[in-house]
Amino acid sequence: MIADPALLAGYGGLGLVVGFVAGLLGVGGGLIIVPVLIFLLHAQGLAAGLEPQLALGTSLASILFTSLSSVRAHHRHGAVVWPLLRRIAPGIVLGTLAGAVLAAQMPATLLKLFFVAFLFYAAIQMWLDFKPAPHRGLPGPAAMTLAGGVIGAVSSWVGIGGGTLSVPFMLWHNVPLHRAIATSAAIGFPIAIAGAAGYVLGGWGASGLPAGSLGFVYLPALFGIVLGSVLTAPLGARTAHRLPVRPLKRVFALLLMVLALRMAWTF
């Protein structure tokens, strides 16, 4: 385990930002964690050529800790649709695990390209405040498993809890917004478990990883991110009640655009 205070402070600072933004806008932190962690690892000369895998695995592992408090809060308000979660969970787990194991073998450039494309998609979705109109009820078991597999696989390639995909999916299938958001938070937990496990297994024994790595999960960064985010998430949530959310989402969308362009510039 790396004990350099400067490095831990940097990861903790990333966690502070991620926690505040997550509490403020109700979005997961993976879209910030992954690109910033890639930049930090590259600047430190760590895991050359494996930075995307290490950043993705660490991001998904952090969701294991950060999603629990969110799920408990939504559950207390009776907003989580647990039957829906049970129906989609098998596909989520299989898709995420398979996606993470596959990503561990993919070229770093291909992963970065996919992530940049997804950042642009997420930024446009947030800027437009896109919410699909409900058209139908929830599909049958096979379609739910397929949908879960796609959400899980994509989430494993971009290091998120799936909300950017699962919320629109549920809204499209006539799930009310507050229940879709709450259930998406619950969906993030099996994504985090399967994704972290996949990146640990996929990176087990890989050469060139920095000290303190568990497969493709970098424990010093994980510790700093989780500690920082736990401290600032409540502050972000309180601030959200005092400020207009729509302009803040547009500011965050611009930040995602900048991160996407910065990553694209490094290809």
Rank of each mutant, 00 (worst) to 15 (best):
A117Q: 04
L110F: 06
L110E: 12
P83C: 03
P107T: 08
L119N: 07
A117V: 13
R87Y: 04
Q105K: 15
G99Q: 10
F130S: 10
L138Y: 12
G99S: 06
L84W: 08
G91S: 13
T96P: 07
Q105N: 10
A133E: 15
M126I: 04
Y121H: 09
G140P: 12
L84V: 14
A108G: 15
V93R: 09
A104P: 01
K112L: 10
G95P: 07
L113T: 14
V101Q: 06
V93H: 06
V93L: 14
F118I: 10
L128C: 04
Q125M: 03
L94D: 05
L113P: 01
A100W: 06
A103F: 11
R87D: 13
P134D: 14
P132K: 11
H135W: 06
A133D: 09
V101Y: 08
M106D: 00
L97Y: 08
A122I: 12
F120V: 15
L111Y: 02
G99D: 08
I88M: 02
K131I: 07
L84P: 01
W127E: 05
L113C: 07
P107V: 05
L102C: 08
L119C: 08
L119G: 01
L102Q: 01
L138M: 15
L113S: 09
P139A: 01
P139H: 12
W82T: 11
W82I: 02
L85T: 10
A98L: 14
F118L: 05
A122V: 13
R136W: 07
F118S: 00
G137D: 13
A117C: 13
G91M: 08
W82H: 06
F118E: 11
D129I: 05
P83H: 07
I92S: 06
G99N: 05
F130T: 07
L119H: 02
A103H: 12
T109Y: 07
A104G: 15
G99W: 02
P83K: 04
F118Y: 15
L128N: 03
G91H: 11
L102W: 15
K112F: 01
A122C: 13
G91P: 14
R86L: 14
L128E: 06
G95M: 07
L85G: 11
L111D: 06
F130Q: 00
H135Q: 15
P134C: 14
P90K: 02
L113W: 15
A100D: 02
